[in-house]
């Protein structure tokens, strides 16, 4: 069985949303930072089981410091959400719970993954302390640069979507 699911990837400016997607779709990484304008759409098919494939249509939204100002029409019909923050920049996760509440108010029943990117820039114990201090419920600590947890993140979301379907 093959189905298609819309996944919206969002977060602050420069947290590495596009890099995470690029790592997942093409298994590549570039230090050359290009700002996403509007939205960029890519696709990757994930094999859940021998007879169950999911096409993830990834909507990479432009970064914003104010999640409330997001273009709501881009969120319409989303089957899954990935909220990305930068573990090395506290400003991208200080208001995380408020940001998540805004997303939740728009899409109350949609699976949401919270991902801390750029794990390669911060030492593990320091990372743990920061997350514990902020009381953040993080699903994955990933690195688009090294590839850490990237596939696992999207595979988990795809599996969740097929079991919820």
């Amino acid at each position: 069985m093959q189905s298609s699911k819309k996944i919206v990837v969002l977060g602050h400016f420069g947290v590495g949303k596009t890099s995470l997607i690029r790592r997942f779709v093409t298994d590549a990484f570039s230090d050359n930072y290009k700002v996403t304008i509007g939205v960029h759409i890519t696709k990757k098919t994930v094999e859940i089981s021998a007879e169950n494939n999911v096409s993830l249509i990834l909507w990479d939204l432009e970064g914003t410091d104010d999640i409330a100002s997001l273009r709501k029409s881009y969120l319409l019909g989303a089957h899954g959400i990935v909220f990305v923050f930068d573990v090395s920049r506290p400003s991208t996760f200080q208001d995380l719970n408020d940001n998540l509440a805004i997303i939740r108010s728009n899409l109350p029943y949609v699976p949401l993954m919270v991902v801390g990117n750029k794990a390669d820039l911060v030492e593990e114990h320091a990372l743990k302390n920061v997350i514990e201090a902020q009381e953040i419920a993080v699903d994955f600590i990933a690195s688009a640069k090294t590839g850490k947890a990237v596939n696992a993140l999207f595979l988990k979301l795809a599996t969740l979507l097929t079991t919820n379907a």
Partner: peptide
């Protein structure tokens, strides 16, 4: 309309990925 998910298509000749185009 909302999600941009392609339901079905017809094409004389298949070109680029239709699911991405739909999105």
């Amino acid at each position: 309309k909302d999600s941009g998910i392609l339901k079905a298509s017809y094409a004389k000749t298949k070109t680029i990925d239709e699911e991405m185009v739909s999105g």
